[in-house]
Simulated scan of single mutants.
Amino acid sequence: MPDGKEADVRANQRTQPVTGINVLRWELGNELRTLRLAAGKSIADAAKWLECSDAKISRMENGQRGAVARDVRDLCKLYGVPAQRRDQLMGLSREAVAADNATSPTIAAKFSTYLALETQARSVRNFEASFVPGLLQTELYARETITHNGEVEDVEDVEQRVQMRMDRQKRIWGEENLLQAHFIIDENVIWRPAGVDPRTRAMREEQIDRLIRATFLEHVTLQIVPYTAGFYQGMEGSTIYLLNLDSGPKSSSACYIEGVFRELFMRSHSEIASIAGKFEAMSEIALSPAGTRKFLMRLLRGNYEHWSSARPTGSAGLGKVAMS
């Protein structure tokens, strides 16, 4: 159980009005899972007790759906939970339902949960195959990607998402409660947009400049996986987040994977360890942080070395491609 100070911190976090995210549902699900395992019960046992499907129990424990107070009460009875703790969990379920009702419909439920967990994390490891990490994006780059992702058409919703992204960045570019962050990005990210017109070229140069500035932050590690690395472990993941959590959910870590066709949380230790292993392998074959800074500075000066200009060993060498 958390001590008084830790409990006060968690209570304060819950009162912060963060639009579109709900960490309470995740907290409740995690607690129900912990209680079930401690009671020696299976998902099937819980489902039989509630007269529901195994999938419903699994989704409740993963934070993918809320647990109504009645279900919490009945599960606590099955798990032998004391009355005082039962009442606390029932209250938490009501708070989670209220937060769900206030959630923005434009933010996917699973990513909403990720955002909430990120506010409580002490460190993050993030791999991106297609876009600059959201925590490092310029406002112009963020607006461009959000506008063209095919999900949001309303200008107001676009601006809401942009502001949310900028608010998240305070833990990278601010002065307090800084997030230890390790970013790995595929070189492909740097070439999009390729500066095919003055507007996109300016956006790209501004974004590269911001990435360079990020390499000077003590709490940030930035690496680029160059084309010369060829195929590598983890490149199949469009977006990977690995969080180490500070307080809140009892789980010490969480892994979130996002792509066009899937959004999922890895919950088991073995799953998270597998993804973490791939992240470590990518770190080993990527450019070093110092090498990444040199690479970005070379690009900003206009000395572009694109994979399409590569020559076989023994030829005239790499050609320079000025994307303008």
Rank of each mutant, 00 (worst) to 15 (best):
residue 251 S to A: 14
residue 317 G to H: 04
residue 200 T to F: 09
residue 28 L to E: 10
residue 28 L to S: 14
residue 262 R to V: 03
residue 111 F to Q: 05
residue 120 Q to Y: 01
residue 71 D to G: 01
residue 32 L to F: 07
residue 140 L to M: 09
residue 219 H to K: 04
residue 271 E to G: 07
residue 231 F to E: 08
residue 250 K to C: 05
residue 180 Q to T: 14
residue 259 G to I: 08
residue 78 L to G: 10
residue 243 L to R: 01
residue 140 L to C: 04
residue 156 E to K: 14
residue 1 M to Y: 03
residue 129 A to G: 07
residue 177 N to H: 12
residue 123 S to P: 01
residue 19 T to Q: 08
residue 79 Y to P: 01
residue 35 L to W: 05
residue 81 V to D: 00
residue 100 D to P: 01
residue 66 G to I: 06
residue 321 V to H: 02
residue 277 G to C: 04
residue 150 G to Y: 04
residue 298 R to K: 13
residue 156 E to N: 12
residue 137 Q to A: 12
residue 273 A to T: 13
residue 69 A to V: 12
residue 201 R to F: 08
residue 245 L to M: 10
residue 112 S to P: 01
residue 251 S to M: 13
residue 251 S to K: 07
residue 125 R to M: 07
residue 140 L to V: 15
residue 11 A to F: 02
residue 309 S to R: 08
residue 178 L to D: 09
residue 85 R to D: 11
residue 208 I to E: 02
residue 196 V to D: 13
residue 50 L to E: 11
residue 22 N to V: 09
residue 277 G to A: 07
residue 252 S to A: 15
residue 114 Y to N: 02
residue 311 R to S: 14
residue 120 Q to N: 04
residue 5 K to W: 03
residue 8 D to R: 10
residue 303 N to M: 13
residue 190 I to V: 14
residue 57 I to T: 11
residue 259 G to S: 15
residue 7 A to H: 01
residue 275 I to V: 13
residue 137 Q to P: 12
residue 187 E to Q: 12
residue 199 R to M: 12
residue 209 D to F: 06
residue 90 M to R: 12
residue 179 L to V: 10
residue 295 F to Q: 04
residue 215 T to G: 02
residue 79 Y to I: 05
residue 68 V to F: 00
residue 147 T to G: 03
residue 323 M to E: 12
residue 273 A to R: 07
residue 39 A to R: 07
residue 171 R to C: 06
residue 167 D to R: 08
residue 311 R to Q: 15
residue 32 L to G: 09
residue 116 A to T: 05
